[in-house]
Design a protein around this nucleic acid. Sequence first.
DNA 1: AAGACGAAAGTGGTTGA
DNA 2: TCAACAACTTTCGTCTT
Length: 307
Amino acid sequence: MPSIVKRCPECGSLNLHHNKEKGEVICRDCGLVIEDKMVDFDQEWREFDSEAAARKRRTGAPMTYTQFDQGLGTDVGRKADLYKFGGKAKNKFFRLRKWQQRISTAIERNLKLALSELKRVSSFLRLPSSVEEEASRIYTLAVQKGLVRGRSMESVVSGALYAACRRHDVPRTLDELSEASNIEKKEIGRTYRFITRELGIKILPSNPADYIARFASALKLTAETQSRSVEIIEEAQAVELTSGRGPTGIAAAALYVAALINGEKRTQREVADVAGVTEVTIRNRYKELLDKLELEKEIKKIKKKKV
DNA sequence: AAGACGAAAGTGGTTGA
DNA sequence: TCAACAACTTTCGTCTT
């Protein structure tokens, strides 16, 4: 596996975790995020072994959904699209394909615009190309199913991006999407729910720990605090403290506590701002954490030290 | 004076009759 | 379709550092 970074600059460890989906390299020993905006080295496309034909076709430049005319046009509805659909949806898909050929020019126009908007937003958020690719694919499917009708193109783009982020465990908050696209948070959430439902895309609730690296670096917290807060989240999950709660709130509270314990206190306000939740939510989660976990002693220890 | 705390009322979405 | 409900927010007064 090609990698630019060989050693953790913080602790010198060679035990690095290269997460290509997130575009991050993390040191397994000290938790330092060494590179979080790296290039994605992988092929953007996976081979699906059920599709021998698709493999044959795949010579020359890689097909990509981020370019409206490459592999699209009258060729929309390639078999690779079907890999996540069942038999019922397949028939539908073939019908749509026929349709598609008739109105392909209109769709091409739409896609051209939409995909450039998608690129703009995704580069604003510095998303890895795998996510951009996925979002393009989702958007393309949405257009083919006519889901954009009655909705603004931009909001569907944002919804597709949000869904792609979630699928790749590289979650961005709705606030971030909203800031990047100038679409209201509500609207993005609405279209996100709509298109994932209509396209039958299953998305698991995101893991609070996925937010830690980003929040922590925004708050300039040390690697120890980071890994500490991930531990806290894991403990909390073990006691079922996390289900049904907003993942960002949990991440924020864990980070807040970890910072407190490690003597790098940040105010609730600061943490709340980067996590996109309110102080109240942090307090609530924080209180639950103290109740259920054995953290009170540690915090008291810190307090005594100060006095 | 700033930060932390918590009560109360409001919001938008989900669920179940 | 509507009401109950959970999670979260906003707002605001009070306590702590």
